[in-house]
């Protein structure tokens, strides 16, 4: 396994699984937090393992691999889970909201009922939005991998030999 793939695999599995599990995946509503964290962790692990200083581009590449792995896991796990637990999750969310703001909870309940669709429609829309979600996860994972380098890489890259006078 290349030196980039193991950190990417760890970051990718983390972001994919956490983004797929209902309730836990709610953290993604904070600017795709799991995706950014997945890319950040992958890049951080690569920085720690790397013999020399890591550039932001390398961090972004590790983030991209992590995002790709995470996106596949998210699609494979997330679509079936969201279809299976959609009703349970909606009920949970309405109950949670009713403790905070009963009026908002009632609006949410009405919105959910108004959007109720046939299974075929639900499957199509779930798949479409899951594909959009997977692309967004990958993009934010790249950004997470990229931003990890200025945060965690303290070594400086050698500047290289100066150009000779002509």
């Amino acid at each position: 396994m290349s030196e980039k793939m193991r950190p990417a695999l760890i970051g990718g599995v983390l972001l994919g699984v956490l983004s797929a599990i209902p309730i836990i995946n709610l953290a993604n509503i904070c600017c795709c937090l799991w995706a950014v964290i997945g890319g950040l962790i992958a890049s951080y692990l690569y920085i720690k393992r790397s013999a020399g200083p890591v550039s932001p581009g390398d961090g972004a590449l590790v983030g991209l691999w992590a995002g790709a792995i995470g996106a596949v896991i998210y699609l494979v796990l997330g679509i079936p889970l969201s279809l299976l637990f959609r009703e349970t999750f909606n009920l949970f969310f309405v109950r949670l909201m009713s403790n905070v703001d009963p009026m908002q909870a009632e609006l949410l309940r009405q919105q959910i009922e108004a959007q109720s669709r046939s299974f075929g429609e639900t499957l199509l829309l779930s798949t479409l939005f899951a594909l959009i979600g997977a692309i967004i996860l990958a993009i934010f994972s790249v950004l997470g991998g990229l931003i990890a380098v200025p945060l965690f890489e303290k070594r400086r890259a050698p500047a290289g030999p100066p150009s000779s006078p002509q």
Binding site: P56, G57, I147
Partner: peptide
């Protein structure tokens, strides 16, 4: 401020892809 990190970062990402 994030734009001042992500813009050169993505340029360096392009350098990584070209080197690869």
């Amino acid at each position: 401020v994030a734009a001042f990190y992500l813009t050169p970062g993505l340029q360096d990402f392009w350098a990584t892809l070209k080197l690869l």
